[in-house]
Amino acid sequence: MQSFLLRRFGVALLTVWVTTIAVALLTRLVPGDPIEIMFAQSAGATREQMLAMQARLGLDRNVVAQYFLYLGNLLQGDFGRTIQGGQPVLPLIMQRLPNTLWLASTALVIASIAGVTLGFFAAYKKGTWVEHVLMTSTVMGISIPPFWLGLILLMVFGMQLGWFPVAGAGWHALVLPAVTLAATNAAIIGRLTRSSMLEVFEQEFMRTAWSKGLPKTTVLSRHALRAGLVPVVSAMGVQFAYMMGGAIVVEYIFSWNGMGTLAVDAILRRDYPLIQGFILVFSVVVVCISLLLDVIYAALDPRIRQGGDS
């Protein structure tokens, strides 16, 4: 377990470190003069302001000095200020972060429940029409563009039926975006569960359980499902990362006031300090939560607990 966790922890640290480098140098990769691009947005920008910003971002120095300047600022919690409006970047992002986490985790719960149910029954009814229908529906689920699904749900349940608000905050506004975000991943989890369950059904201990004459539900839930869910649960960290990524698009459709909406606007406005802050916060959050999920998984899985590496 320790070696597994150490490795995961190492990767997490490495990722965060690489992100800081990538983010710090992002402004260097922009074609044209980033300072010109930033400041052409504010009609009254003076030469002094532009030079000050250049110095602030370390663009007047070499790459290494720029990186350490940026890192130093980060360590002091200074993520810079937005070009448009001069707002401090970090609080701006942190204000939106809970909304995104809320959306992603709700969607993860929905996707897991739906996906596991679906995959379990598909495996249980192997070879029947049930499996075919379920598996075809997962291919559909993977194929529908989330942004289109979101619009359709909005049109039907928001506008036509009026069951859910078309935008806003709070629980009832969360349902449609969470379902939209969950759809693709429910399909993926469903496929994962199915193949894992199929393997479990073939295994020796299952035959033993059946032959002992235990009730059907006991065999299925106690033995089969528990074993079959191991690979599914181990993939939770990855799933969560994809939920966070998917949230960017889904938020935009539903005007959900999260990091994704902020990021898309920032990219369209070329507000580089905000883009940098977003990428950094996003990957740190994803890395930390994936790590957390892995730790929980490792604590639960006896094979890893006993020192094996998965």
Binding site: I113, T117, L225, P302
Partner: peptide
């Protein structure tokens, strides 16, 4: 093994809360 994820139970719990959401 320590997993206690039970889809059936979870669904029982989820349905009423979804209904609450609708009525909010």
């Amino acid at each position: 093994m320590k997993f206690s994820v039970r889809p059936v139970r979870a669904a029982q719990w989820l349905l009423p809360s979804a209904a609450c959401l609708l009525l909010a």
